[in-house]
Design a protein around this nucleic acid. Sequence first.
DNA 1: ACAATATAGTGTCAATGAAACACTAAGTGT
DNA 2: ACACTTAGTGTTTCATTGACACTATATTGT
Lengths: 244, 244
Amino acid sequence: MKKLIDNVSVDCIIFGFDNNELKVMLTRRDCHDPVTKKLIFSDYTLQGHHIYYGESLEEAAKRVLKDKTGLENIFLEQFKAFGSLDRLGSDRDKLWRKHVFPHVSDHVITVGYLSLVDSNKVKPDAEHPDTSWFSINDLPLLAFDHELVLQKALRTLRSIFRRKPIGFELLPEKFTLHQMQTLYEVVLGVKLDKRNFRKKVTQMKYLIPINDKQKNVNHKPAQYYIFSWDVYKKTKKRKYNFVT
Amino acid sequence: MKKLIDNVSVDCIIFGFDNNELKVMLTRRDCHDPVTKKLIFSDYTLQGHHIYYGESLEEAAKRVLKDKTGLENIFLEQFKAFGSLDRLGSDRDKLWRKHVFPHVSDHVITVGYLSLVDSNKVKPDAEHPDTSWFSINDLPLLAFDHELVLQKALRTLRSIFRRKPIGFELLPEKFTLHQMQTLYEVVLGVKLDKRNFRKKVTQMKYLIPINDKQKNVNHKPAQYYIFSWDVYKKTKKRKYNFVT
DNA sequence: ACAATATAGTGTCAATGAAACACTAAGTGT
DNA sequence: ACACTTAGTGTTTCATTGACACTATATTGT
């Protein structure tokens, strides 16, 4: 059996887009008194795990991702290593280590990976009943330094969103320009002008209208588009901000 | 005595600017046969060290920096954690581990920090005779995965250079606009138009001309400028590319 | 004193990209 | 047929970028 490395973990910040909100996948951490079985506290953690000897950081992140979402080959990018001394040091964390996980090291470096999934593809998982989506705008209490990690992931996400066309990783395969605009507004926290937005994106060769429209909507049906990485790679220009 | 964590190290990529070249500080690694004392090979490493139990990543990076340059409070930014399995796996690295460092783990995650120093302030150090500056354009053979680490540091440096006024960290306190332009040209690998450059930078309130000029130069003496972080923080605009 | 040399320092115009803004089109439901 | 709802479309103004050439001021050598 493979052995875990005590001092190194990865944390995956799994983002999804649903119901016009940016969401993140969290797992409840219940701390029970081992004797009385009473619940001492509850909070939430990001999706993390220690790495194994002989396992790279990226492999570990992919393992966690596969385990929690069932998905492979999804967008994954390392954004920061966290190595403060106080990152596992809150009162709750101390109680948790004492009661639930007495053998864990108190000096763990974690490497944060942010990943983007099409939330439609993530099925509710019976194996992980404590894991679910939370809106970025309505977060519960988080364990360890995960509030810090999540905020850094968010800033990184926004920064990448401006420079690369990664929004599509959060959208279904076919989508309308309205969906796309909403996504960019929600993630970047700005209001975009419809005409300017459409003018800009319809110049992008890698946004391809397909022969398919919305159906059964009580308004003019919107054109569906798909995104092509191939075309993007071939046509991208130097110096391009995806959305201003 | 503090104990080192086997599986985690930091590497500082220390950049300097001298003689119109971007330089990086490297240390020679000589691998001798322990029996015959013959030199098996020589190559160069970045400035790294394992972290101690009870020491944060950033503290470790600052320790390495202090040790190698004598400087504190200099620009330091984490840019990536490296955790591939083959990062210590070249033939040279295996020989080195076998002959010189038999007890080191073969699974070490390293966290890369890039730092910028005014190379005038770094005195040649008798304690580290094997450590010296190398031009980015004329690098020797590097140990481990340090070629990869250095290239990533360089890309990060360029990216930060475009968004934040960190060039000054590499310049002396007072400098001419010509020096500054050359620095930006060298780091970004572009040719800049003198008039456009000066037009742009003289709009920056945080670039302050001082009552001092070049002396004893056989041409019109250039105005000296200083940079003010304070003014920058107060006057910076949203959405600003330092140099296009 | 003067010329040669070397770098410092300065302004305009054209092209491109960003931001502001209001109406018609095509479906569904009653 | 009419009300309702979201889709889809162009023009103008303003700011930013990029191209481009000459004068100013110091030193050095004659």
